[in-house]
């Protein structure tokens, strides 16, 4: 990314460059009838470029909510989210959409692809949405993820491992500052899980900030840093 974040003088600065993705005291409530649950209770974190961070914690601890807020898919009730210094939270949806398109990659547990498009078309569509049309780029990206041979296959023709790598190709299509992944290996067996983790580590080495929400111990082992959530709070 070449866009330089506007200087923000109200925030204390520890480095010259802002973190790739940063959350400050995020709060998120959910209401169901009269009951109110606190999904996030003041969560703060900062992930630098090239860092591989895993958010761990039991089901219902707030991992998915945190990830949704970091990606700008959900709006925190309190606190701010910044992507390379630019505020993502409490912005109008068009602004969030633009920031997402330019700086954030998202890898979901499943459903990363459009069923009616081939792998190549899925990657190209993601690039076009982000106004980054470059066919050679997409081919290079697919080669680097070892999926080039399946470029013209449809998602339902892919094996579990291929699907995970193709999903990663789509998530990386816009050359994001930060890659956010929600249980990316939940449905994979151990060997495939390791393959995907190696690819994520390679991306981190290439300077992408990687944030993975997962309860898998194997994923946690691969991380530079593990942030554990319990009942919506950072417990370690």
């Amino acid at each position: 990314m070449t866009t330089v974040a506007p200087a923000d003088h109200h925030e204390p600065r520890t480095r010259d460059l802002p973190p790739a993705i940063e959350a400050r005291s995020l709060y998120r409530f959910f209401r169901a009838g009269d009951e109110e649950t606190l999904a996030l209770q003041g969560v703060s974190l900062a992930v630098e470029a090239g860092e591989f961070v895993v958010i761990a914690g039991p089901s219902g601890s707030g991992k998915s909510t945190l990830l949704a807020c970091l990606a700008g898919l959900d709006e925190p009730d309190g606190g701010t989210v910044r992507v390379s210094g630019q505020r993502l939270s409490h912005q109008a949806e068009p602004v969030r959409a633009r920031l997402r398109a330019e700086r954030v990659g998202l890898l979901l547990q499943s459903g990363n692809m459009f069923d009616h498009l081939s792998v190549m078309q899925n990657v190209m569509l993601a690039q076009q949405v982000a106004h980054r049309p470059a066919r050679t780029d997409s081919e290079a990206l697919m080669s680097s993820l070892g999926i080039a041979a399946r470029a013209h296959a449809r998602p339902d023709e892919l094996s579990g491992g291929e699907l995970a790598r193709a999903g990663l190709a789509v998530a990386l299509a816009n050359d994001p500052v930060a890659l956010l992944a929600d249980e990316p290996t939940g449905e994979l067996d151990h060997a495939t899980e390791q393959q995907v983790l190696r690819l994520l580590e390679l991306r981190a080495l290439a300077g992408v900030a990687i944030v993975v929400a997962s309860h898998s111990p194997a994923v946690a082992e691969a991380a530079d840093r593990v942030i554990t959530l319990t009942d919506g709070k950072v417990s370690s």
């Binding site: 959409a97 997402r100 569509l125 949405v129 982000a130 816009n174």
Partner: peptide, 16 residues
């Protein structure tokens, strides 16, 4: 709806 949500995840604008 699912497709639209996925497009938004990829940062598609309203116009797109």
């Amino acid at each position: 709806r699912r497709e639209q949500a996925l497009l938004r995840v990829r940062g598609a604008s309203q116009r797109q």
